[in-house]
Design a protein around this nucleic acid. Structure first.
Ligand code: SF4
Ligand code: SF4
Lengths: 141, 141
DNA sequence: TCTATTGATACTATACTGGTCCGGTTAGGA
DNA sequence: TCCTAACCGGACCAGTATAGTATCAATAGA
């Protein structure tokens, strides 16, 4: 059970919280960790790749914290998952067929490739602002 | 990287091979393991849940082996993955929301639920016989 | 300068993945 | 009958990933 691990789940909840507290200036990690019941030291590590990816920006020092560096409409869940899981695929061989000697005529590869695409398309269609909406009906169907 | 682990990949390739060798009578594990380059002792373990699920049947003794117990059209890849991964979901909380205290008003849960559904629908739409087809164009798009 | 807050590493405990090994059981065939 | 091909079941194992902790340094506001 690892494609959507706590990394993505915590991370997405963190971003939603940031999107709710836009225009408060930088929000400190501790307050989000607390009200989302996420271990602060663990969340602190998830924040690094998000910053590197340009999704959030940070301010150090007292009164520092994090804020979204883009509109939540422009942050897709796909991007968040890719950044936090370190990969975008459920399978190595769909992205790097050269890793498997059998890939050239593997009958199952097209199936997995299709599955990847289904996942990609879905996640690409949902943004952080969709997620932040109180009851978002569309993507749940 | 584990939702589609070697279990599903090996298992599906095994079933495809069985579907190709239908009407040969029981096929012994060793010969499939060899030509699919799957460790025989490992494959031997994957075969147990497939039998328990009624996907294949086994014959013991000399000249024994395995054969599909249903038409390959009636075996969906979804079923194979569920049986071999021991679960159908990428996330626990979508199936058992009671595991998470926050599930009642978790803003991200509908997203993951929607993702599960996308995955389910896709995998349900592909059967072992589709997979066995030499170049199956439909589901790869 | 004091203090709140991020930044960067290093460490750990647990579980999962992908195997191997081995002794036992069943049944076809010489 | 007895040999042997094949399945059956379980213990075991090394490597890696996940989830989390701990420590200390850097920075900026009051
Ligand atoms: S055999 Fe097919 S599914 Fe398995 S790793 Fe190779 S290409 Fe991928
Ligand atoms: S917080 Fe939401 S996504 Fe995370 S486990 Fe609970 S219900 Fe699932």
């Amino acid at each position: 059970m690892s494609f959507i691990s706590t990394r993505s789940r915590y991370g997405l909840r963190f971003l939603i919280e940031l999107s709710k507290r836009r225009n408060e200036g930088p929000v400190d990690l501790g307050s989000i960790a607390e009200d989302q019941a996420i271990p602060e030291t663990y969340l602190a590590k998830l924040v690094v790749p998000l910053r590197n990816a340009g999704i959030i920006r940070s301010a150090r020092g007292a009164k520092g914290g994090y804020e979204l560096s883009r509109s939540p409409d422009d942050i897709t869940v796909l991007e968040v998952v890719e950044v936090l899981e370190g990969r975008s695929s459920l399978l190595e061989c769909t992205e790097r067929p050269e890793l498997c000697a059998r890939s050239a005529d593997c009958p199952t590869l097209p199936i997995w490739t299709g599955l990847e695409k289904a996942v990609h398309d879905y996640l690409k269609g949902v943004s952080v602002s969709d997620a932040a909406a109180p009851r978002a009906p569309d993507y749940a169907i």
